[in-house]
Design a protein around this nucleic acid. Structure first.
Lengths: 196, 196
DNA sequence: CGCTAATCTAGAACAAGTTTCAGACTTGAT
DNA sequence: ATCAAGTCTGAAACTTGTTCTAGATTAGCG
């Protein structure tokens, strides 16, 4: 190897490990969903000892929620570069969420793994879950184009976020059709119109 | 024992076993929530072999979802005897759901166990989860006093149900206050007003 | 350099959900 | 009454998330 390739610092190697773990988890989830993300496999596949994996992510749920954070951040970035073009806030948000839904549809097992972890998470993960909630709310507020929402609007945004998550779960479990997801998201988005 | 006490038939003994299992599961859940409902303990506490428990409920999630069905049916019965008295459908539904919320608050660990199982359930439980969804929808429709809802109304009802479940989870995980639950349920219920 | 604390590894061990098995006990049909 | 099928029991075994241990490696620092 070339001599000028400076050896990576410890922090770099740790960041690299973290990335490898997230990637391995994502690949396993893409293949077989929640149950296929087995900690031993994640460890082996990311070339890290089991104990190290648990140092980085204190539980399987933590790992999967971190994966979801990752995905949402990526999605948020993409959306900020391509803001939705729609009539009012309701339509823009509905468009955005259905776009996100289509993106998740491409890897349904991955989506299943992440969303199930998210709703299964107990108090020990509440901080990370909260972060995911905030990201979702941020995405919706961006789509609305509302920099300073009133409390009543924030409540409406939360309802939309709840609806999106629940509809996603129902679809992933085969209990709702895509049409139903679209309908319910659109229904919830009606709350975002500033009519009252 | 008195001679006239006829011996219970097989079906009766099975129904009795099922009841015992549900009761044992409920007691354990009341004490320690989801993780305290351990299948071995449930089996021992309901005087049934582990294999028998698994014959009645093929998984822990099935058991907990059945417990939720049980609770909802009871609640539905109670509500039908005491219909809510409110202005419009939105207010009546909001009242009803907040009443249900208060009922669940009395046994927060039980609620946590049941709701977490509900959202964690995978496809193998979809039939039972669907039944819970239908019960929730039925409760909401009853509160609305709407015997023949239009499709658009059904979508609004689903949004309300989603919101209620999600808000409940958020509260149980310590990520939302009761005030926030109340606000969000009320917000979602606005969709039930037949204004458009 | 040499020390100390932190990190990583390999692997065993533990916990709880789930499955399996052999045997005993019903039940229902013939 | 008897046979076949189904059910229940007790216990062991298996799986996978999680924890623990002992030793090797590394990083930061005087």
């Amino acid at each position: 190897m070339p001599a000028h390739a400076k050896p990576p610092t410890a922090a770099e190697r740790q960041a690299e490990r973290r990335r490898r773990i997230l990637r391995a988890g994502t690949q396993l989830a893409c293949r077989g969903g929640y149950e296929a993300v087995q900690m031993r496999e994640v460890a082996e596949s990311s070339q890290v000892a089991l104990g190290t994996l648990y140092r980085y992510f204190p539980s399987k749920v933590h790992l999967l929620v971190a994966m979801m954070q990752d995905q949402l951040e990526r999605m948020h970035g993409t959306l900020q570069r391509q803001p939705p073009a729609g009539e009012g806030p309701a339509e823009r948000v509905a468009q955005t969420l259905m776009g996100a839904f289509r993106a998740l549809q491409r890897e349904p097992r991955l989506a299943e793994a992440m969303v199930r972890a998210l709703t299964f998470a107990d108090r020990s993960v509440s901080q990370e879950v909260d972060q995911v909630t905030r990201l979702t709310v941020a995405i919706i507020l961006d789509a609305m184009g509302e920099p300073e929402p009133a409390p009543a609007q924030l409540s409406a945004v939360r309802v939309v976020a709840h609806t999106w998550h629940s509809a996603l779960i129902a679809w992933l479990s085969g209990r709702a059709s895509i049409a139903q997801v679209r309908t319910d998201v659109a229904t919830a988005c009606r709350l975002l119109e500033p009519e009252d």
